Amino acid sequence: MDAPDQDAALVYVQGELEENHYCLLAILYPNAHQRASDNRTIPYLARLAQAFKDQH
């Protein structure tokens, strides 16, 4: 707590059919948890992830 410079997250998705394919969707830094709690962030990343999974 109180260390936003130590709060980071990589958000990635694995392909559905091609399990060796990955896509890095976002790097949340600093304050990864606060950024992820934004009501627009997770739905947006979920749409990106679904689009990638649909293609891979």
Rank of each mutant, 00 (worst) to 15 (best):
M1C: 14
M1G: 15
M1N: 14
M1D: 15
D2Q: 15
D2A: 14
D2C: 07
D2M: 13
D2N: 15
A3L: 10
A3D: 10
A3Q: 15
P4M: 08
P4L: 01
D5C: 09
D5F: 10
D5W: 06
D5Y: 09
D7F: 00
A8W: 02
A8C: 06
A9S: 14
A9G: 09
Y12L: 11
V13Y: 02
V13H: 04
Q14I: 10
G15Y: 02
E16R: 11
E16Y: 09
E16T: 07
E16M: 11
L17A: 13
L17G: 11
E18Y: 07
E19C: 08
E19N: 08
E19Y: 08
N20S: 14
N20R: 10
N20W: 07
H21S: 15
H21L: 10
Y22P: 04
C23H: 04
C23N: 10
C23V: 09
L25K: 05
L25G: 02
A26L: 01
A26Q: 03
I27P: 00
I27T: 06
I27R: 03
I27H: 03
I27N: 00
L28K: 00
L28M: 11
Y29W: 12
P30D: 02
P30T: 09
N31I: 01
N31S: 11
N31K: 05
N31F: 03
A32K: 00
A32W: 00
A32R: 00
Q34S: 09
R35M: 09
R35C: 03
R35A: 05
A36K: 00
A36Q: 03
A36C: 08
S37Q: 05
D38W: 00
N39T: 05
R40N: 12
R40D: 05
R40M: 03
T41I: 02
T41G: 01
T41M: 02
T41Q: 00
I42S: 01
I42A: 01
I42C: 06
I42N: 03
I42V: 14
P43R: 08
P43Y: 01
P43K: 07
P43N: 10
Y44N: 14
L45S: 02
L45V: 06
L45Q: 01
A46S: 14
A46E: 13
A46Y: 06
A46N: 08
A46M: 12
R47G: 11
L48M: 07
L48Q: 07
L48S: 03
A49Y: 04
A49F: 04
A49C: 07
Q50H: 14
Q50C: 12
Q50D: 15
Q50G: 08
A51I: 13
A51Y: 08
F52P: 02
F52D: 06
F52K: 10
F52V: 10
K53S: 11
K53P: 08
K53W: 08
K53D: 07
D54H: 11
D54Q: 14
Q55S: 07
Q55P: 04
Q55A: 13
H56R: 15
H56G: 05
H56I: 08
